[in-house]
Design a protein around this nucleic acid. Structure first.
Length: 570
RNA sequence: UGACCGAUGGUGUAACGGUAGCACUGCAGAUUUUGGUUCUGCCUGUCCAGGUUCGAAUCCUGGUCGGUCAACCA
């Protein structure tokens, strides 16, 4: 992981404690289960874009396979033609690949197993473990009982094998309307586990599927497809989220009745992030109702959104590693995700001086019309930091925030009569703040000390701070999109009665502004990463054009001064 | 008011009967031509009550709190 900077000592296997899934796998390997083989899978349903929660699952599933010298599959759980689309299949593959995982030739679709699944359904009927039920969905639900009350058996539960077989075959042929009949497993209507109360295996859907077209009009449910797909692929450890825990008895029941390869389902707690929603349904709503520009809006917690925001695959993998894996509900602090990008970008991002909120500054004793070139460091964290020339002139732009007419005690920047260093250039002294008729400061007049240019002996003089700047005649205007968290509340769903999560939306999650940069960005292409010195990390938006560049703010730098300014009581 | 799962600093996560550690956050300081980075230090924790044991975060019992389950979604 560490490419530059201080060499981090990798912890040895013994030093690093194992999470509960790694413990299970380690024990399985030790006991020779599955011949010591480890094979995992990531099974997305192609009905939406992947988000950071999926990233956790991908890193977990695939990371485990890598760690234990196993294999991992990418499998689309495409059993519901009503909600699934190729657009999603494509985006999912792009995102998984971008995260840094290569599934080789192990790309599968649950729909590839439809025929096998069907054969197994007949097998179950022959064993007397499944039946065609003609109750309506409402009737089935009414008879299912409640978690505290047992259900009642369907009147169709005990029909003969031949009749069941005939009916199922006719269901497949398309002789019935949607909802008219379903195939159900015959288990136990009084089980305390609702999922064991004769779950539906097949439902009739007269819709074409993005892969099987119109070949089928009966589609397997999740329970009927998922475990068997794992088994067909000889998945050893089928890792999923906690809400499927109650499905496990059914998962195991199918394996037992069908006498097929016994994959083992293991559940972990899904990721929750503060100030973020993870529900695909709600994310879709934000997209459809135009609260964001699309699935890849840089404010979205989707992989494609994070990518466009400027996150790197490494930072997301690092994050997944840091958050850990366990079975208890959790809410990860968004600060950890931000820490993860900063950690990575600090090592990689090219430094550039950009002014976003300009205040003109005239160096009155500097020769008019002269331009000199000063050396700027490209990235101080690199073993070979590199240098770049930056033009310096009499009239420059500095950040408005870097000047205060009447500064508080701990403000170290420019103020009347105070000295400051212009990074890579000279030490200047503020002589005068020029105001307009409204009393607003329009420009600053300063003088410079010609002996303090970086590299000269006098440059080592101590000054309280160093600020960034841009030569005004050389300044190039760019568009800058300042993103902030999409939601104001730590838990966006924690809202007043009658309101929904949208009432927690942050109205200031996007501010579009201008920036001025003189050098360092020529030829920068989509998603190239920069640090605007003292401001934050930015990347080139894919919509950016050479003559009209657009930068997205990934995250600000940590800002001790901003924190202090917020808590003036100290 | 059923079944299942869970409970360790502010947030996550370790410790597998023997000194409660790590990361993030927060705070304080050092270094710094980024109030960044880096470095140092500090704050803060085993849900409760019993029991077993020389010894319990860990095992047992009971409670409390939180989550999940009543789609022909996944």
């Amino acid at each position: 992981m560490t490419q530059y900077g201080s060499p981090e000592r990798e912890k040895t296997e013994e030093e690093r404690s194992l999470n509960f899934i790694e413990q299970i796998i380690t024990e399985d390997i030790k006991s020779g289960k599955n011949d010591g083989r480890v094979h995992t899978r990531f099974p997305p349903e192609p009905n939406g874009y992947l988000h950071i929660g999926h990233a956790k699952s991908i890193c977990l599933n695939f990371g485990l396979a890598v760690k234990y010298n196993g294999l991992y599959n990418l499998r689309f759980d495409d059993t519901n033609p009503l909600t699934e689309e190729v657009e999603y299949v494509d985006s999912i593959m792009e995102d998984v690949r971008w995260l840094g995982f290569d599934w080789g030739d192990r790309l599968y679709y649950a729909s590839d197993y439809f025929e096998q699944l069907y054969e197994w359904a007949e097998k179950l009927i022959i064993k007397g473990k499944a039946y065609v039920c003609e109750l309506t969905a409402e009737e089935i639900n009414a008879r299912r009982g409640t978690p505290t009350r047992p259900g009642t058996e369907s009147p169709y539960r005990n029909r003969g094998t031949e009749e069941n077989l005939d009916l199922l075959r006719r269901m497949r042929k398309g002789e019935f309307r949607e909802g008219e009949k379903v195939l159900r497993a015959k288990i136990d209507m009084s089980s305390p586990n609702m999922h064991m109360r004769d779950p539906v295996l097949y439902r009739i859907i007269h819709a074409s599927h993005h892969r099987t077209g119109d070949r089928w009009c009966i589609y397997p449910t999740y329970d009927w497809a998922h475990g068997q797909s794992d088994s067909i692929e000889r998945i050893t450890h089928s890792i999923c989220t906690l809400e499927f825990e109650v499905h496990r008895p059914l998962y195991d029941w199918f394996i037992r009745e069908l006498e097929i390869f016994p994959s083992r389902q293991i559940e972990f707690a899904r990721l929750n992030l503060s100030y973020t929603i993870m529900s695909k349904r709600k994310l879709l709503q934000l997209v459809k109702e135009g609260y964001v520009s699309g699935w890849n809006d840089p404010r979205m917690p989707t992989i494609s959104g994070l990518r466009r925001r400027g996150y790197t695959p490494e930072s997301i993998r690092y994050f997944s590693d840091r958050i850990g894996v366990a079975k208890r509900e959790n809410v990860i602090d968004l600060a950890l995700l931000e820490h993860s990008v900063r950690e990575d970008l600090n090592k990689k991002a090219t430094r550039v001086m950009a002014v976003l909120n300009p205040l003109k500054l005239v160096i009155t004793n500097y020769p008019e019309g002269e331009t000199e070139e000063v050396d700027a460091v490209i990235n101080p964290e690199m073993p070979d930091p590199g240098k770049r020339k930056v033009p310096f002139t009499r009239e420059i732009l500095i950040e408005k925030d870097d000047f205060m007419e009447d500064p508080p005690k701990k403000f170290f920047r420019l103020a009347p009569g105070r000295e400051v260093r212009l990074k890579y250039a000279y030490i200047i002294k503020c002589e005068k703040a020029v105001k307009n008729d409204h009393g607003e400061i329009t420009e600053l007049h300063c003088t410079y000390d010609p002996l303090t240019r970086s590299g000269m002996p006098d440059a080592n003089r101590k000054v309280k701070s160093t600020i960034h700047w841009v030569s005004e005649p050389h300044a190039r205007e760019v568009e800058v999109r300042l993103f902030d968290r999409l939601f104001l509340k730590e838990d966006p769903d924690d809202v007043e009665k009658g309101q929904d999560f949208k009432s927690s939306l942050n109205p200031e999650s996007l501010k579009v502004t201008k920036g001025y940069i003189s050098s360092g960005i020529d030829g920068a292409g989509a998603l190239d990463k920069f640090q605007f010195e003292r401001l934050g990390y930015f990347c080139v938006d894919p919509e950016s054009k050479p003559d009209k560049m657009v930068f997205n703010r990934t995250v600000t730098l940590r800002d001790a001064w901003a924190k202090m300014a917020k808590n003036p009581q100290k």
